[in-house]
Nucleic acid binder design. Structure first.
Length: 859
RNA sequence: GCGGGUGUGGCGGAAUGGUAGACGCGAGGGUCUCAAACACCCUUUCCGCAAGGAGUGUCGGUUCGACUCCGACCACCCGCACCA
C-alpha cells in the first residue's frame, strides 16, 4: 500500500483511463429517448485553422460543463462537434505553400481532433462532420435548389473589391488602405452579377421575433434590432428642372419629413442611375465618381471618408413651392443600397448635412428650435431626441410645439393628403449576397444554358463536387483568381433541362451559408436528406448555444433566416424557426501580438511559441509587441493549449479557463494561473486520499456543520452553473474544499462530503472527479450519476449578523436570531454602544431596518 | 463615423439598491527542512503609530443608503454586410 506521501496526482494516467471508460460505456452517445426530456447544447464549431487555442478550450469547456450538468439532472443530452471547413485560409495556404485546400483542411481537422480529444469533452463524436464533406454540402445544394424554387434566391448586380493587377476579387480584409494585400494595387469597385438570399422578405419577422428570445443577451437583441434598422419615413419625388431625359423625377426617402422646409440640397449616391448616366456624358462627373469608387465597399470606410460632393448643375423643385429650386449633388456618403439612393439634406438638423452645406456654401435654415433656446444653428446641428418637444419655426404639419416623432407622423399624413409621396417602412437590412468567386466553398448548383438560361442542377446529380485535379494535373493555386473558372472539364457540362452544352456556375457559396444550418444537420448527420423529420422534431431547438460575441449579428441573423427558409422548404418543423432557445456569448481570449516586417515593409506575424524575450527564437530578430487583442489566426497571437495539457493535464486547463474571469468577459491569457490550478487539484486529490483512509467512526458534533456546508455548496454551485457563473461556482468549490480540509467531522461524514465535492466538480474537471468518486465508493461513473440535491432544511441559518449603519456608514454590528421581529431588532440596535454614542441622548431622525440585511440609523 | 459593450486592491475578479474587495493569483512574515522545493499557518485596498479618514474610470444627480439607478464625459474592446 502506498503511504500518503507517495500518492501523487498524475493526470496523465488518470485522464486516459477515464476517457476510455466513458467510451466503453458510450456515455456521450446521444439517443432519441421519448421517455426523457432532451437538451441540445452546442458551441459554435471551429474553423480548422490547424491547432486549437485557448479560446476553443474556454468555449468547449463551458459547453461541456452545461452538457455534463444537464445530463446529471436527467436530460437526454445532444452535444456534437464539427468543422466549419470552407474558407479563404485554405486557399491562401495553397497559394503560399503549395498543396491543395482539401488536403490542408482535412489534415488540420485530424490534428485538431487529436488535440481536442484529450480535453475529455462529453461530445458525441459519432455525429462529427466537416462542412467541406460532399455529403454535407451536397445537402446544402439540395436546399439551395429548394430555396431557389421557393423564391428565396435571386440574382442581381452587386459591387466587389477588384484587384486590377491580380485580376481577382478581394475580401474586405484583403483590402488594406484601399490597396490589394498581395499586389499593392489600388482596389477598384467592380460590378458582377451575383446570387442573393431574400433575407429582406423576413426583415419584419426577424425584428419582431427578437422579443421572444428571452434567453438571449439583451445586447445581442439590441444589436440585431439596430442592424435590421426599421424606420418609418416618407418617400417622394423631386421634380427636376433641367435633368437629362428619363430623370425628370428623383425619388428620395427621408425619416425626417418634418424638416422638409429646411431642405437645402438633394444628394444622390455615386451608384445612382442618374450619376451613372452623367458619368457617361461628363468627364468631370466620371472623374468624381471614380474617386468615390476608390473608397472601398465597407460602410465603415464610407462613413470615415471625407464627405465630398459634386454639383451636377441639375436643379429640382421643392414639392411645396414651384419657385424653390434645390441643387443636386452627387455625394460620396450616400448608399445606393439604402432607401432610394437619394436624399434631401436638412443641414440644420443633421451634422453630416451641415458639414456638407458649410463646405459647399449652401444655406441651413432652422426648422425647429429648443423650447428654452432659439439660437440659430451655426456649426453644430441641433439634433434632439425624437421624443423631445421642440418649437417648429418652419413646420408645416401639426402643432408649433410638438415632439419630432409626432411631427414626422403629422408630416407623412399631410404629404400623403397633398399627394406628395407616401409613408413607407424601410429596413437597413440588405439582402444576403452569397456569391464568392473562389474555389474552396460549396459550389452553387446551377448551370448556365444558352437556350434555357439559369437552370438548377438535377437533385440526383448532387453533390456538384469540387474537382480535385484537372485531368490528373493538380489544380494550380499559385495563379490568382478562381480555379473553377479555368477548369474546362469541370466547368463545361450538359444543360440539365435540354441537354445542350452548357457551363456550370463557378461561384461558390459564402461560408456563412455552411454555418447557418449545421446545428440542424447535427440532429441527423448521416441522413440522405438535409434533415430527418423525426430527429429534427426531437432534438431541435438548440437549448443552449455558446459562442463569441463577434458573431452577435451576422452569423446569428443568417442562421435565424436560414431556419425560416428551412421551415418554408420543409426541412425543419415550424417550431424550429428560431433555432437557438438560449444564447450565451462568451468573452474572447486575448493575447499580445508579435509583429515584424518583410522586405517590402509588410506586416508579418509570429506565434507566441516562436517568440522568446521579445525576439524570434529562430533568428533573434526583435519583434514589435502590439497590445492584447482577440486571438486570431491572421495575427497569429494564439496560445497552444497542448503544452498545458501535457504538463498539467486537461483538468487543469479546464479548471483554469473557467476560474477567475466571468465567462462573458474577455480574458487575457497568462501562463501564471495554470500552475496554481494544478496545485489546487493536487490538494483535492491528496485530501481525497486522506479522507478515503479515515475509519468509518461514529458521528461527531462537527458532522452537522460539515453537512450544512456541503448542502450550502450544493445549492451555491448549482445556482452558479445554472446562471453561467462558472467563476463563482469554482470560488464556491474552493471555499468548500477549504472547509472540508479543516473539518473535524467523522470519517463517514467526510467521505460523504468528499463524494459530493467530486460530483460538484465533475462538470469542470471530469477525470479527477471520476477518480475521487471511485475511490470514495461511488456507484458507477460520476458522469452518469444523478446530480446531488440540497436539503432546504440544512440551508436555514439560526442567527444572522446585522451591520449597523449610522448615516449610511457602517459603525457596528449585532448578532440576532434570524427570525427576530423588526421591533426587537430596533431595540437591540438602539442599545448598541456606537448608536448610543452617535445619538448623544437624542432621538434618531429615522430608523431603517431591512430584515436579515441591515440597520441604518439616521441622526 | 455609426451601433453595442466594458471600467472595482499589485493582478483576475465578488457583491437581489443594504457590511465594497468573497474566491484565487502575487507579495510579505512564520512553521517544517542541513538546505531548497512541496505543504501548512498568519498578514495583505490606500493614508495614518493610533483614533480616524478616503475609496469601485471622471464630474454631477436621485436615495436613509449607490459598484449597482439617472445625466454628461474619458479610456479601452467588439461589429459594420467578401475574415471566420
Amino acid at each position: 500500500m502506498s503511504s500518503q506521501n507517495d500518492a501523487r496526482y498524475t493526470p496523465q494516467a488518470i485522464e486516459i483511463k477515464w476517457q476510455q471508460a466513458w467510451e466503453a460505456a458510450h456515455a456521450f452517445t446521444a439517443q432519441r429517448d421519448p421517455a426523457r426530456e432532451k437538451y441540445y447544447v452546442l458551441e459554435m464549431f471551429p474553423y480548422p485553422s490547424g491547432r486549437i487555442h485557448m479560446g476553443h478550450v474556454r468555449n468547449y469547456t463551458m459547453g461541456d460543463v452545461v452538457a455534463r450538468y444537464k445530463s446529471a439532472v436527467g436530460f437526454s443530452v445532444l452535444h456534437p462537434m464539427g468543422w466549419d471547413a470552407f474558407g479563404m485560409p485554405a486557399e491562401n495556404a495553397a497559394m503560399e505553400q503549395g498543396g491543395h485546400p482539401k488536403d490542408w483542411t482535412y489534415g488540420n481537422i485530424a490534428v485538431m481532433r487529436d488535440q481536442m480529444k484529450p480535453l475529455g469533452l462529453s461530445i458525441d463524436w459519432t455525429r462529427e462532420f466537416a462542412t467541406c464533406d460532399p455529403e454535407y454540402y451536397g445537402q446544402q445544394q439540395a436546399m439551395f435548389i429548394d430555396m431557389l424554387e421557393a423564391g428565396l434566391v435571386y440574382r442581381k448586380n452587386a459591387v466587389v473589391n477588384w484587384d486590377p493587377v491580380d485580376m481577382t476579387v478581394l475580401a474586405n480584409e484583403q483590402v488594406i488602405d484601399g490597396k490589394g494585400w498581395r499586389s499593392g494595387a489600388e482596389v477598384e469597385r467592380r460590378e458582377l452579377t451575383q446570387w442573393f438570399f431574400k433575407i429582406s422578405d423576413y426583415s419584419e419577422e426577424l425584428l419582431d421575433a427578437l422579443d421572444g428570445l428571452k434567453d438571449w443577451p439583451e445586447k445581442v437583441r439590441l444589436m440585431q434590432r439596430n442592424w435590421i434598422g426599421q424606420s418609418r419615413g416618407l418617400q417622394f419625388a423631386f421634380g427636376a428642372v433641367n435633368a437629362p431625359e428619363g430623370f425628370d423625377r428623383i425619388e428620395v426617402y427621408t425619416t425626417r419629413p418634418d424638416t422638409l422646409l429646411g431642405a437645402s440640397f438633394v444628394g444622390i449616391s455615386p451608384d445612382h442611375p442618374l450619376a451613372r448616366h452623367l458619368e457617361r456624358h461628363d468627364s468631370a462627373v466620371a472623374e468624381f465618381v471614380a474617386e468615390c469608387r476608390k473608397i472601398g465597399t465597407t460602410e465603415e470606410a464610407l462613413e470615415k471618408a471625407e464627405k465630398r460632393g459634386f454639383d451636377t448643375g441639375i436643379r429640382v423643385r421643392h414639392p411645396f413651392d414651384n419657385d424653390w429650386e434645390l441643387p443636386v449633388y452627387i455625394a460620396n456618403f450616400i448608399l445606393m443600397d439604402y432607401g432610394t439612393g437619394a436624399i434631401f439634406g436638412c443641414p440644420a438638423h443633421d451634422q453630416r448635412d451641415l458639414d456638407f452645406a458649410r463646405k459647399y456654401g449652401l444655406p441651413h435654415p432652422d426648422v425647429f428650435v429648443a423650447l428654452e433656446d432659439d439660437a440659430p444653428v451655426d456649426t453644430v446641428a441641433f439634433v434632439p431626441p425624437k421624443t423631445e418637444p421642440v418649437r417648429y419655426i418652419r413646420g408645416f404639419a401639426g402643432d408649433a410645439v410638438q415632439t419630432g416623432a409626432d411631427a414626422v407622423d403629422a408630416a407623412i399624413a399631410l404629404c400623403e393628403s397633398r399627394g406628395v409621396g407616401h409613408g413607407v417602412t424601410n429596413y437597413r437590412l440588405r439582402d444576403w449576397g452569397l456569391s464568392r468567386q473562389r474555389y474552396w466553398g460549396c459550389p452553387i448548383p446551377v448551370v448556365h444554358c444558352a437556350t434555357c438560361g439559369v437552370v438548377p442542377e438535377k437533385k440526383e446529380n448532387l453533390p456538384v463536387a469540387l474537382p480535385y485535379d484537372e485531368d490528373g494535373t493538380p489544380i494550380d493555386f499559385s495563379v490568382p483568381g478562381n480555379p473553377l473558372d479555368r477548369h474546362p472539364s469541370w466547368r463545361d457540362c450538359a444543360c440539365p433541362k435540354c441537354g445542350a452544352p452548357a457551363r456550370r456556375e463557378t461561384d461558390t457559396m459564402d461560408t456563412f451559408v455552411d454555418s447557418s444550418w449545421y446545428y440542424a444537420r447535427f440532429t441527423s448527420p448521416h441522413s440522405d436528406t438535409p434533415t430527418n423529420a423525426e430527429d429534427a422534431a426531437y432534438w431541435m431547438n438548440v437549448d443552449q448555444y455558446i459562442g463569441g460575441i463577434e458573431h452577435a449579428i451576422l452569423h446569428l441573423l443568417y442562421s435565424r433566416f436560414f431556419a425560416r427558409a428551412m421551415v418554408k422548404t420543409g426541412h425543419l418543423p415550424e417550431s424550429a424557426s428560431e433555432p437557438f432557445n438560449a444564447l450565451f456569448t462568451q468573452g474572447m481570449v486575448t493575447h499580445e501580438i508579435y509583429q515584424t516586417q518583410d522586405a517590402k515593409g509588410r506586416a508579418v506575424y509570429h506565434l507566441p511559441e516562436d517568440v522568446e524575450d521579445g525576439k524570434l527564437k529562430a533568428t533573434g530578430e526583435a519583434v514589435r509587441i502590439i497590445p492584447s487583442a482577440k486571438m486570431s489566426k491572421s495575427k497569429k497571437n494564439v496560445v497552444d493549449p497542448v503544452n498545458i495539457i501535457q504538463a498539467f493535464g486537461a483538468d487543469t486547463a479546464r479548471w483554469f479557463v473557467l476560474s477567475d474571469s466571468p465567462p462573458e468577459r474577455d480574458v487575457e491569457w497568462t501562463s501564471a494561473g495554470a500552475e496554481a490550478a494544478f496545485k489546487h487539484l493536487s490538494r483535492v486529490w491528496q485530501l481525497s486520499d486522506r479522507i478515503a483512509a479515515m475509519p468509518d467512526d461514529t458521528t461527531t458534533d462537527a458532522d452537522t456543520d460539515l453537512l450544512r456546508a456541503m448542502h450550502r455548496a450544493i445549492a451555491d454551485v448549482t445556482k452558479a452553473i445554472e446562471n453561467f457563473a462558472f467563476n463563482k461556482a469554482i470560488a464556491e468549490l474552493y471555499a468548500f474544499t477549504n472547509t472540508l480540509s479543516k473539518a473535524q467531522a467523522s470519517g463517514a461524514a467526510q467521505q460523504t462530503a468528499m463524494r459530493t465535492l467530486a460530483q460538484l466538480m465533475a462538470p469542470m474537471v471530469p477525470h479527477l472527479a471520476e477518480d475521487i468518486w471511485a475511490r470514495q465508493g461511488g456507484a458507477g461513473l460520476v458522469a452518469q450519476a444523478p446530480w446531488p440535491q440540497a436539503d432546504p432544511a440544512m440551508l436555514v441559518r439560526d442567527t444572522v449578523v446585522l451591520p449597523i449603519q449610522i448615516n449610511g456608514k457602517r459603525r457596528s454590528e449585532i448578532e440576532v436570531p434570524a427570525d427576530l421581529p423588526k421591533e426587537e431588532v430596533e431595540k437591540l440596535a438602539l442599545a448598541d454602544d456606537a448608536v448610543i454614542k452617535a445619538l448623544a441622548g437624542g432621538v434618531p431622525k429615522k430608523l431603517i431596518v431591512v430584515p436579515g440585511r441591515i440597520v441604518n440609523v439616521v441622526v
